[in-house]
């Protein structure tokens, strides 16, 4: 009962945050709405008994990635965006497309999922089980992902480094 009430409250906060993210005109308000979405998602994970995933969600998304978003917005001193009233393409194709997409997802969920609800503790949640899955059963995909992240970091370094500083380093040595 308590689970259901909490689920509904934080589900509502999550959806409201997502809508607010789109409606707000100032980038920093949008970014903060996204933080609210991340945090309420973490509570939903917690309700499913996945406390480790919930904590990681807060630390990584709300605490690190979104801080960088806010940092960039502050650094660029981005101002309020002007409202364009939406493009004609978006109205013609976007709304029907969105409706069709959500209908498809709802249909798949209704026909292909079991009828019993997921209860707390039914899925791997404690850190030990997650670690077993990550570093034992799915070790190869995990390591491949880390290579992917490494490539992304190297790409960022190459893109961010100024040509002059690379030249200078070559000259020095």
């Amino acid at each position: 009962m308590l689970h259901l009430v909490l689920f509904l409250i934080f589900g509502a906060i999550c959806v409201a945050g997502a809508v607010n993210l789109l409606v707000q005109r100032h980038p920093i308000n949008s970014a903060l709405s996204l933080v609210a979405v991340m945090a309420s998602l973490a509570v939903e994970y917690l309700l499913l008994g996945a406390e480790f995933v919930a904590a990681v969600q807060v630390i990584v998304y709300a605490g690190a990635i979104m801080v960088l978003f806010v940092f960039v917005i502050m650094l660029l001193n981005a101002g309020e965006e002007a409202r364009t009233g939406g493009s004609r393409v978006a109205i013609l194709f976007g709304i029907p497309g969105m409706l069709a997409g959500s209908l498809l997802v709802a249909w798949v969920l209704i026909t292909h999922s079991g009828t019993q609800e997921v209860s707390a503790g039914a899925l791997p949640g404690p850190p030990r089980e997650i670690a077993n899955l990550l570093f034992h059963d799915f070790l190869l995909p995990f390591e491949v992902t880390s290579v992917l992240v490494l490539i992304a970091i190297m790409g960022a370094v190459v893109l961010a480094a100024r040509p002059e500083s690379i030249e200078q380093q070559k000259r020095e040595g």
Binding site: L32, V35, A55, V58, I59, A62, G63, A64, V67, V70, F71, M74
Partner: peptide, 11 residues
């Protein structure tokens, strides 16, 4: 997690 959110207040 909570201390990582603390940066928002300052920022």
């Amino acid at each position: 997690g909570i201390t990582s959110l603390g940066v928002y207040g300052v920022a």
